[in-house]
Amino acid sequence: MANRYLHNVQGLFDTIAPNYDRMNNIISLGTHRHWRKQTMQRIHLAPHAHALDLCCGTGDWTIAIAQELKAPGEVIGFDFSAPMLQLAQRKVDQAKLHDRVWLRRGNAMHLPFKDDSFDLVTIGFGLRNLPDKERALAEILRVLKPGAQLVCLETSQPDQPLIKPVWQFYFTKIVPLFGRLFAHQYQEYSYLQETTRHFASYSQLATMFKQAGFQQVHYERFNFGAAAAHFGTKPEVRHAN
C-alpha cells in the first residue's frame, strides 16, 4: 500500500514540476522564501559541512545551503521526482555550484547513505507527503552524525480563532482554484491542500521528533502558524567510563 501511495505521489510531483516554483509563489504569496530565509538564519553550518536536503524538489533550499559552504563542503539534494531534479540541476548550473551540490534520486524512507554521514539534514515541505513519516525520521536520525541537526520546514495550521477559518477557506477553496487557473491542475492542488490540512500540528510534529529519538526539539512558527520550522538534534555518543 505504501509503495502504491508513494508511486502515486511521485507521479503527481512529476506532473506539477513545470509549474511548481510559480505555483509556490502564488499560493504562499511569496512568503515561502521568507520562511526559508528565516530558518536558514537559525542553522549553524560549518563551511566544510556535509549536508543532505531531502525532498529537495527544484533545489531552492539545496542551493541556499550550498551558498553557505566552501569546498570540500557539499550538499546532496535528494528527491524521488526526476522532473523536479532536472529543474534543480538547471538552477545549480546557473548558480555555478557544481563543486558543492550533488543531486540524487531516491526514496526518503530508505536512504542509500551510511550511518553518521551528515552534519545537517533538511527537509522542506516534503515530510507531509511521505506515507511513513516515522520511518523517514528514523532514517534521518540514522544518517546524521551524533550532535548534528535535522531541520524541517513545513506548512502548518494556525490555531488562533480569528485566523483559522480564513486559513481553512483559503486552502480548501482558493488553492485548488489557483491550481485550475494558473496551472490547469485542479485535482493535483486539491490533493496538496488536503495533505496540508491533515498534516500533524506543530506540537504533534515536535512529539514525533522526540519519539524518533531527537533531542533539543524546538520549533518556530511563521505567519500566524501557517508554517513552522522544527529543529531536532541527534544525541551525542556517550562512552562508558
Score class of each variant (00 low, 15 high):
residue 4 R to T: 14
residue 5 Y to N: 08
residue 16 I to G: 02
residue 17 A to K: 07
residue 23 M to F: 06
residue 27 I to Y: 15
residue 35 W to G: 04
residue 35 W to N: 04
residue 44 H to A: 12
residue 48 H to N: 13
residue 51 A to E: 02
residue 52 L to T: 03
residue 53 D to T: 03
residue 57 G to S: 09
residue 61 W to I: 14
residue 70 K to D: 14
residue 73 G to M: 02
residue 74 E to N: 11
residue 78 F to A: 08
residue 84 M to Q: 11
residue 85 L to P: 06
residue 87 L to D: 04
residue 88 A to E: 09
residue 91 K to F: 00
residue 99 D to P: 06
residue 104 R to E: 10
residue 105 R to I: 15
residue 107 N to V: 02
residue 110 H to Y: 12
residue 110 H to C: 08
residue 111 L to Y: 08
residue 113 F to H: 06
residue 123 I to F: 04
residue 123 I to C: 12
residue 125 F to N: 05
residue 129 N to T: 03
residue 133 K to M: 15
residue 134 E to K: 13
residue 139 E to D: 02
residue 140 I to E: 01
residue 141 L to A: 06
residue 141 L to Q: 10
residue 143 V to I: 06
residue 145 K to D: 07
residue 146 P to V: 04
residue 147 G to I: 10
residue 149 Q to L: 01
residue 150 L to K: 02
residue 165 P to Q: 07
residue 171 F to L: 14
residue 174 I to T: 06
residue 175 V to F: 12
residue 179 G to R: 01
residue 185 Q to N: 01
residue 187 Q to K: 12
residue 192 L to K: 02
residue 192 L to D: 02
residue 198 H to R: 15
residue 203 S to A: 14
residue 203 S to G: 03
residue 204 Q to V: 08
residue 207 T to V: 12
residue 214 F to Q: 00
residue 215 Q to D: 07
residue 224 F to I: 00
residue 227 A to D: 02
residue 228 A to K: 04
residue 229 A to H: 00
residue 229 A to G: 03
residue 231 F to S: 04
residue 233 T to S: 00
residue 234 K to H: 03
residue 235 P to C: 08
residue 238 R to F: 01
residue 238 R to D: 00
residue 240 A to D: 11
